[in-house]
Design a protein around this nucleic acid. Structure first.
Lengths: 242, 242
DNA sequence: TCAAAAGTGTTGTCACTACACCCATGG
DNA sequence: CCATGGGTGTAGTGACAACACTTTTGA
């Protein structure tokens, strides 16, 4: 907020919004792993390198809306989870200009991600084996990955990778893919149910040659211990992807 | 990062850095409570209202350095803890212009805060009973308070309010003041020592009419479980305040 | 009837709480 | 010698890990 006023220089600091997007996709062995979409830079600096989707902040657009828009432009998807990650502003992070980037991170549904747009300038890569990216974007994605993994441990965000309803095995498979470690099905079940945020739909998922598991739905209205003040409680799901 | 390029409008978005500063000061009953310094706005908009210390981001200054500088300008102090809080950028948060504020939060030593500069345009207020502030600064301080309180529960930051060495009773008094709830001295002692981040100095604090307690020093080099990737491990203490 | 996964029971460990109790010092 | 905090011992509780076990389905 304006406390001391300085004239804006000829080369002002510019403000960008970027988004780290995560989805689960099966690797060659069929097990789901984290993937993230990148865009190819079509102008200097760093022309031709792969980078995070993003762009300059339009003066009349909210930060989160800008993040959701670039996400939609690059993937054709609407996020099921979207949260501010961090603001990166090192003086020398972009050659030639001072760029401050407000970075968001997002989760999108895995089945939607499968039919996401891809083209010569959009490429999905495994989040754990990144190529060399433009600017400081490797570091940013690594930080977002760390945040996703720590948050999955204490929070209920794994459901954002799934559809409206899901079985506990599906949910566990998601968490295992994010944490890269197997979990005890019995204990996972109890921990999830004890959280009070899952509601039975009354349905079961038949068809497999085993006992049909119950289908659950995530209940965002259930009492949270202490939600973060910056978190929205409304679902992002209902937004039209238009 | 430049992905799509838009011409900078006549009224560009401006980037500010603000800092929420916390120190412990005794209230009238002598018990320490959280205080935060505010500055009076000397120009429109919101002229005359109290606001967070901050200012426009100089093009050649790091975000964190800008936060430390405004902190030094308003309090004359160097922070013992400084961390990015959040970036607030709602389109309508500042009347007349689009202002995006990267907000930091800081802790300063309580005894230094006692002799901090204050004047007609700088005022310290109890952090829990704020007056009506300019812009969205009430909300920002409340979020910083929430972050301080949650972080004190799982992290070792309380020592940042104290000097180089301290007793466990002093440290506990700090945590009690932040959390606004008494703690069991025996359990607090064990939890702190089990963290592995306190080192005995070998000294004791004599003079009181009780058994002299040991003095401890915070050890930032001790193995942390998993430090946040954005956190610096070096101490902020050593920096000259000049 | 069998493979496979759903779902339940049981035990051990560990962190944390509550609180009784002993220790060392200055007055 | 006693008030005052420093510091230790110990039992209870609740969350979680490990793993044996029963249940229910499709083939």
């Amino acid at each position: 907020m304006p406390q001391q006023t300085k004239p804006i220089g000829e080369v002002p600091t510019r403000l960008a919004v970027s988004t780290v997007i995560f989805a689960l996709r099966p690797d060659r062995s069929g097990r789901p792993v984290l993937w993230t979409p990148l865009v190819r830079r079509t102008r200097e600096p760093q022309l031709g390198l792969w980078a995070l989707p993003g762009g300059w902040l339009p003066p009349a657009e909210e930060l989160e809306a800008a993040a959701a828009r670039t996400l939609r432009l690059t993937t054709g998807l609407a996020p099921t989870y979207l949260e501010q990650l961090y603001t990166f502003g090192e003086v020398d992070r972009s050659p030639g200009a001072r760029v401050v980037s407000v970075v968001y991170w997002a989760l999108v549904q895995s089945d939607e991600a499968a039919r996401a747009t891809a083209g010569p300038n959009v490429r999905w890569v495994p989040a754990d084996t990144l190529p060399g990216l433009a600017f400081d974007h490797n570091r940013i994605i690594e930080y977002a990955l760390w945040r996703l993994r720590t948050k999955v441990e204490y929070s209920q965000i794994a459901h954002a990778f799934l559809g409206e309803t899901f079985t506990l095995a599906e949910l566990r498979e998601v968490v295992e893919a994010v944490l890269q470690r197997p979990l005890d099905p019995a204990n996972f079940r109890r921990t999830m149910l004890a959280s009070g945020r899952l509601r039975e739909t009354g349905e079961r998922l038949a068809g497999a040659r085993n006992r049909p598991p119950k289908l659950y739905r995530y209940d965002s209205t259930a009492l949270a211990a202490t939600p973060e003040p910056t978190a929205r409680t409304e679902s992002l799901r209902e937004r039209p992807a238009s």
